[in-house]
């Protein structure tokens, strides 16, 4: 079993689950900067649990995560993440609110013949334009974000950063670019931070 350590968190990996890469490290770093003690945090699609485990090791947050893949859910659980097998927000009651929601979506533009069999496809496949999952997330998150709450979404230049930004603004969020990863040669990775203004909540 391979274990990696990042910012004092030990994370066990699994051969059936997408390994943490530059995108995961970037989202974890930004999440630590943004999160405050006592916040209710949700990570959608936790994978190995890397981002959640790193965040809860460094900030005293109350965190839960959802994950659709059974292998990833078990891996996240081994990494001490309180994980629920669910499809995005499907498992939460309508009065459940989070202060911070994290999402590292499957964002690679993927044609039908590029899909891979099994649960791992959920980690990569962003549909034809790469935005299928992030667009669905942006349609579904509003009832679950508290007034003044924040979402952090990891996006690649391959996915169309401006289009995602516009979608976020259309959902009542103030959007800022939080961090740019300069170490990737084939794509640019950024975290978009969206802050919910109570007065503009949908």
């Amino acid at each position: 079993m391979v274990t990696i350590t990042y910012r004092d968190a030990d994370i066990e990996l699994d051969e059936n689950v997408y390994d943490p890469a530059e995108d995961s490290y970037l989202l974890a770093d930004v999440a630590i900067d943004v999160a405050q003690d006592g916040m209710h945090v949700l990570e959608v699609g936790a994978g190995t649990g890397f981002v959640s485990a790193v965040l809860q090791t460094n900030v005293d947050v109350d965190l839960v995560a959802t994950e659709i893949s059974p292998f990833a859910a078990e891996c996240a659980k081994r990494n001490s993440v309180e994980v629920i097998r669910a499809d995005m927000f499907g498992c939460f009651g309508s009065d459940t609110k989070f202060d911070l929601i994290l999402f590292n979506p499957p964002y690679l533009p993927t044609a039908e013949d590029e899909k891979i069999p099994g649960w791992l496809n959920y980690a990569f496949d962003g549909g034809i334009d790469g935005r299928e999952a992030v667009d669905r997330f942006l349609e579904e998150f509003p009832p679950y974000l508290s007034d003044g709450g924040i979402i952090l979404v990891l996006i690649s230049s391959l996915t169309g950063i401006d289009k995602v930004k516009m979608h976020m603004q259309g959902r009542g969020l103030d959007v800022e670019v939080c961090n740019i990863d300069r170490d990737c040669f084939f794509e640019e990775l950024i975290v978009l931070k969206g802050t919910f203004k109570a007065s503009e909540q949908l």
Binding site: I68, R85, G90
Partner: peptide
């Protein structure tokens, strides 16, 4: 199961 609630609708 093993501490993880499976809240997927039956078809998923």
């Amino acid at each position: 199961t093993d501490g993880i609630p499976n809240m997927l609708p039956p078809e998923l």
